[in-house]
Simulated scan of single mutants.
Amino acid sequence: MLRLPQIIRNFFLRFEGLFGVLFQSVSNFFGNIFGFFAQLFGFTNSGYFLESDEVQGIKEASAKQPIEKVQNNTAKIPTTNSRPPNAKLDDYYLNMARDVKKK
């Protein structure tokens, strides 16, 4: 790489890093200010825009009858998911090992 383009690229990388650090602190400052006012007016409460449960027509889950669970009495047989053998690849490595032994 030529020396001048390398110097220019390094300069712009450092310049970008400087602005990233400066603007991050500025954005954190404004974020803290707006966060304070949001907390002051109650906008951080997640339920401030929801209506009450009666207005929405939501009923308690306990009012419903419990669902009956049917037990399955069949025995579960554990299965293994082994990969099928790759005979072609195994033969390749066995042949390679034989060739190494011959030498």
Rank of each mutant, 00 (worst) to 15 (best):
G17L: 05
A97W: 06
K88L: 14
L50S: 08
V55N: 02
T79G: 02
Q24G: 13
A61I: 11
N45G: 04
L22W: 07
Q71I: 09
P85V: 11
S82L: 13
E60R: 05
R14K: 14
L50Q: 10
I58A: 03
P78I: 00
L94C: 04
N45I: 03
R98E: 10
Q65D: 14
E51H: 11
T80V: 09
P5T: 02
P85E: 08
Y93K: 02
P5K: 04
L4A: 08
S46H: 07
K102P: 00
S82Q: 08
I7G: 00
Y48K: 07
A38V: 01
N45S: 14
F41K: 03
D91W: 02
G17N: 15
L4M: 13
S27P: 00
N95M: 05
K69G: 05
L22R: 07
V100Q: 07
F37R: 01
N81H: 10
T79E: 11
E51M: 09
S82N: 13
F19T: 07
F36C: 03
V70T: 10
G47C: 07
T79L: 10
F29T: 04
F15E: 05
S46V: 11
M96K: 15
G20E: 05
I33C: 05
M1I: 07
R3Q: 09
I67Y: 01
K69H: 06
F43A: 07
A63I: 14
Y92Q: 12
Q39T: 15
I58C: 01
F30R: 01
N72T: 01
I77S: 01
E51K: 10
D90G: 10
N95R: 15
T79M: 12
F11N: 03
L13T: 07
T74D: 08
L22S: 08
I77N: 03
F37K: 01
I58R: 06
I8F: 01
F29E: 02
N45H: 08
E68M: 04
D53S: 12
N32V: 10
M1D: 08
